[in-house]
Each structure stands twice: as C-alpha cells, then as structure tokens.
C-alpha cells in the first residue's frame, strides 16, 4: 500500500522526487565529507599544481595543488549552511516583525512596513554587497547580510497572514480572557503563520545559496583558503582559459545543489497550495 503511494507520487511529481534526491545526496555528502573525500581539502601538494582531472586527483587540482574533488565535497557544508542559515535568520526575524506589525497595526505597522518597502527598493545583490562590505568581508557576515536583505519577504507574508488570523474567533476569545499581546502573538498568531513561512523558506534556499556564492565570488564572502564553491570559481577564473576544470566543477556543484532545492521547493508549494495543484 505504502509503496504504491510512493510510486504514484513519483509518477505525478517526478521533478519533486529528483529534487528531493539531490538534496538528500548533497546533505549526505556534507555530513560524511571527512569519510569520503580522498584528500585533505586544505593540504597543499606544490608539486601537483593545476593538474587536469585524472586518477590521483579525480577533478584535478588548484593553483596550490589542493585536490578539487575533496574541496568540492567540503564545500557542500558551507553552501548548505549558507542556504539554511540565511532563510532561518530571515524567516525568524521576518515572522516576528510581520506578526507584530500585523497584530499591533497603527504606527508600528506603518513604520515597519515603510522600512521594508524601502529595503525592497534595492536590488538584493546590491544591498547584500553594501551590507557585507560594511560588516567586513567574511563568510559569517555575508550570510548575515543576505539574511537581512531577505527579511522583507517574510515580513510581508506573515503580516498578511496575521491580518486574517487576528480576526479569528480563538484570537478574539483570548483577548476577552485578557491574554497579553506577547502571549497572543507567540501562542496564537505565529503558529498559525508557520506553514506559508516554511514554504517560502524552502523556496528561498536555492536563491540564498546563489547570492551567498555570488558574494564569495566577488570577494565579500568566504575568504581563501576556505573550500567555498563561489570563492573557488572566483580563483579558478584566473586560470579559466588554460585550466578549464578549476572554475567549471565548483560551479556545477552550485548549479546542481540549487536545482535540487528549487525543484523541491516547487513541489512543496504545489502540494501545500491548492492553487498550484495540477
């Protein structure tokens, strides 16, 4: 019976299944990175600089003779951390701000929402670039910067949701019993906004990984010698015309990971939102 259900699901949503598999594989790779990588990702082999893909070094080596394959395996940890970290931070702050804004209304609402509108007046990558330059270029700050830039998305979503939830009878009832605002927001409003936030967060992971990698690429995220995919493409760019493998493989890793999250996110939205169901 269960198997039949899975088979039906796979047939109905083949792309979602592909996405889920990609995420599971990348997640597993990140988890067991030390066990499966053939070399130490930071170990220099100066005699083996810029070797093409081959037996000893499956995907070739970089300008310091480090094994690219091992570095790409370890890179999965940083990119997954970036993607999940960004949507978690943005999701949590966005949910709190959005629910407060929607529930309290009035001036608080006006100020929060105007501020969010203004943040949306900046292209994402541009504001993330400015913020991460101001915070100082490193991996942690680049994640913080992208998270801040993504907060308005969640604020708008949760505020809209809050406006409809706060009219429900159970909220009115809680108010009659004299429940505090903090209690109502945290116990009644936020739990009822979580489903759409989760969908939005899932859909946002792919984009978050891309922006974080782009920041690393332009020198504002992870700094060398960190095995971060965007930073690897950035250095590999110098050697592009003669050592094609250097910039190519880390980029493929980013691409596959983001495709996985986007397929998965699309599927989750289709499943939970009847408007998108086939």
């Amino acid at each position: 019976m269960e198997l039949k259900y899975y088979r039906y699901f796979a047939k109905q949503y083949p792309l979602t299944v592909v996405g889920t598999l990609i995420i599971l594989i990348i997640g597993l790779v990140a988890l067991v990175a030390p066990l499966i990588s053939p070399h130490d990702p930071l170990q220099l082999h100066l005699a083996d600089r810029l070797l093409p893909p081959g037996h000893t070094y499956l995907l070739g080596t970089d300008e310091m003779g480090r094994d690219l394959f091992s570095r790409i395996i370890y890179g999965a940890r940083l990119s997954l951390a970036a993607g999940v970290g960004i949507v978690s931070i943005a999701g949590i702050f966005g949910t709190v701000l959005g629910s407060v804004s929607g529930f309290l209304g009035g001036k608080t609402d006006l100020i929060i929402m105007r501020l969010m509108d203004i943040m949306l007046a900046f292209p994402s990558l541009v504001l993330a670039l400015a913020l991460s330059a101001a915070l100082g270029p490193n991996f942690r700050n680049s994640i913080l910067a992208v998270a801040v830039v993504k907060i308005p998305v969640y604020v708008r979503l949760v505020r809209g949701q809050t406006l409809s939830v706060k009219e429900k009878h159970f909220v009115k009832a809680a108010q009659t019993f004299g429940a505090s605002k903090v209690w109502i927001i945290s116990r009644h409003i936020i739990p009822n906004c979580l489903a759409p936030v989760m969908v939005q967060a899932t859909l946002g992971i792919g984009e978050a990984i891309l922006i974080a990698a782009a920041l690393s690429f332009i020198g504002l995220g992870a700094q060398p010698p960190a095995a971060e995919w965007g930073a690897m493409v950035s250095v590999g760019r110098t050697y592009l015309l003669d050592q094609w493998w250097y910039a190519t493989f880390p980029g493929i890793a980013i691409f596959i990971t983001v495709v996985g999250f986007n397929l998965f996110g699309d599927g989750v939205r289709d499943l939970l939102d009847p408007r998108f169901r086939h």
């Binding site: 493409v233 980029g251 691409f255």
Partner: peptide, 12 residues
C-alpha cells in the same frame, strides 16, 4: 534559469 549561478554561466 533561476538555478544557474550567473558568474559561472558567464565563464562557461
């Protein structure tokens, strides 16, 4: 399209 890192696409 939405999954391709723009900087990598350019290099390719």
């Amino acid at each position: 399209g939405v999954s391709t890192p723009l900087f990598w696409l350019g290099l390719m």
